[in-house]
């Protein structure tokens, strides 16, 4: 680009001085003051004003982030102790307590959701990445995934409620997991497709040239090479699912007890960190509100760590 321009534009070189005639100043009617950058000119002033306005607005947009983090550390950090991880939620008016069952519930439901959405998402992505770019069916799948990305999370809960809770007559960890899996699916499909498409064409061609079937190529070349990118997508999806509240409100509901009370059973109401924060934030008891802040701190840490792991993976993705 730059070298091309240089080739097109003839280098400006000072020609030989005019041998005859008086020296004529070619810049005689140019007012040099007008070419200088001056704050008295409106266009310069507008420029400066807008630049400062935009900088200030960007900084202002970051204030909530710092405020949230500081509040979490201040109000959540005070009560953070080992107890909150091992004890059960307190009854109203009761002191102490924790949310061990909610952490466990969140982990179990996110794991369930991952179990459903990872195979579904990756295989769909394999199909999309193998399809021709102009294929209308692949376009439809991609469009569906994009629509699902902006899908209100509460409607995933409504769906799981209609399919599982109404049919099997009860709130359960399974229904919560299914609702979360719907929200994880589009992220996994779209990032995994990108990652698989980024695998250098040489590697794919080499495998096919060796006589590998498309399936062998997928399993032995494409998926291992694209794995960092796919894992990034999975981590982002998990981070999003862990923080979701709306789809769990009326699928997993809440529970004040351990999930494995009386045998390990996924078909009973299950606590989760996000729903605990929602429930406790609205209570008129200081102890519960404090616990909500601690739970929020734990949840944000969980989500951020998952996000960071995902970003660490994305740096190892091989680009063409």
């Amino acid at each position: 680009m730059n070298t091309q321009d240089a080739a097109i534009n003839p280098r400006i070189t000072p020609g030989p001085p005019d041998p005859v005639g008086p020296e004529v100043n070619p810049f005689a009617d140019v007012d040099f003051c007008e070419l200088e950058r001056s704050l008295r000119r409106p266009r310069t002033l507008v420029d400066l004003l807008l630049s400062n306005l935009v900088s200030a607005m960007t900084m202002l947009a970051l204030i909530p982030l710092f405020s949230v983090v500081l509040m979490l550390l201040w109000r959540g950090g005070q009560r953070l102790s080992l107890d909150v991880f091992t004890q059960l939620p307190p009854a109203p008016m009761e002191q102490g307590g924790g949310f061990g069952n909610a952490i466990l519930g969140t982990l179990i439901m996110v794991a369930l959701a991952a179990l459903i959405s990872i195979p579904l998402g990756i295989l769909s992505a394999v199909y999309l990445a193998q399809s021709r770019p102009e294929s209308p069916f692949a376009g439809a799948v991609r469009f569906g995934a994009k629509i699902l990305t902006g899908f209100p999370s509460i409607l995933a809960g409504v769906f799981a409620y209609g399919v599982l809770v109404l049919t099997f007559g009860g709130y359960s960890a399974i229904a919560g997991g299914v609702a979360l899996s719907i929200l994880m699916l589009p992220t996994i499909i779209l990032t995994a497709e990108d990652a698989i498409r980024m695998v250098p064409a040489k590697m794919r061609d080499a495998a096919i040239g060796m006589g590998a079937t498309p399936t062998q190529t997928t399993w032995m070349v494409l998926l291992p090479t694209a794995m960092p990118g796919i894992l990034t997508g999975i981590m982002l999806a998990i981070a999003r699912a862990a923080g979701e509240t709306a789809p769990l409100l009326f699928t997993a509901l809440f529970s004040n007890y351990w999930l494995f009370r009386g045998g390990f059973d996924l078909k009973q109401p299950t606590a989760s960190l996000a729903v605990l924060i929602y429930n406790f934030a609205g209570m008129p008891f200081d102890n519960q509100v404090d616990l909500a802040w601690v739970a929020a701190l734990v949840l944000v840490l969980l989500v951020l760590v998952t996000n960071l792991i995902g970003q660490a993976f994305s740096r190892r993705q091989i680009h063409e």
Binding site: A61, L62, V68, T245, I277, A281
Partner: peptide, 16 residues
């Protein structure tokens, strides 16, 4: 940092 704003769960924003 701006993208981090999106990573915070909405229920935490509600609490805040």
């Amino acid at each position: 940092l701006i993208e981090l704003l999106a990573a915070i769960p909405s229920v935490v924003y509600g609490l805040w």
